[in-house]
Amino acid sequence: MKRSILLALVAVACVIAVPAFAGDDAMCAQCHDEVAAGMKNQIHMRIHSFEVYGRDVGCTGCHGDGEAHMEEGDASLINTFADGEDSQACIDCHQNKNQAEWAASTHAMEGLACTDCHNIHSRNNPLDSCKSCHMEVYVEFELPNHHPVREGKMTCADCHDPHLGTEAQLRTHTRVNDLCYDCHQDKEGPFIFEHEPVVEDCRLCHLPHGSVAEGLLTAGEPMLCYQCHEMHFHAGLKSPDVPIDVGGTERENPWGIDGMTVAFTSKCSQCHSQIHGTDLPSQTVSSGGHGMVR
């Protein structure tokens, strides 16, 4: 019952707290009807002053006091963002709204303006704008193996926040691996038997945007593995070109004399399947259980 009373008090507080919406945006619309049409129900016309700690909202929130402009019709008497470079009006509010790191972002250092990516007078934001500067990245999603961006299941913004001050403006304040774990949590462990490069950095083996090789690998198996590991010690064995009797059983050799080479130099992860780490030891004693095969 006490909890219910508390809830009731909260409800009353909400009613009292509903703000009065101040401004003269409707007056702007009398002359700028085309802009107003685009702004209909747009977020900037719906926000309230308390959300931005008492700042002006609506048309005057961005363009400043329009009284002199209305009287004289001179566009220079309001903020017009004509050169596309003055983002301060946006930053003033948005620095407090999840974009506190904008000034430390690479995009800010590059001198990008908010309007380079956002169409403020529209409901559909942002523009389809990553492509305009990063097309060479976007086409990587056309490679045979890719994160499903071109299929529309992901967007650039799932991994990158263009307003952050982090490495590559990635959505993480810990390691890049932790960003990958957000969706691929099963790869973190921590596992007893580690594969060193997996722990070091996912990008040692994977290209996050797209790759010719399976599994977004930087190179196909087995060449990926051969950069650090020698070939399997049975890879050089030769096979007879005909079936051979072993322990009383006749064994086929479908790949001829290169059968063992084909078996041991095609795909390491067929046997070393737990390449991201495991808690179960591999079979051989001499490996100390580190073979990543179980």
């Binding site: 049975h234 030769k238 051979i244 072993v246 059968g259 084909v262 078996a263 067929q270």
Partner: peptide
């Protein structure tokens, strides 16, 4: 909310079939 599918390869492992001269088997 979103839902999508991701098909994975089925590795039929045909390459893993060999016997060496000295009788080692894959």
């Amino acid at each position: 909310y979103n839902k999508f599918m991701h098909r994975n390869i089925h590795d039929h492992m045909e390459n893993l079939e060999a016997t060496s001269f000295n009788g080692k088997i894959v």
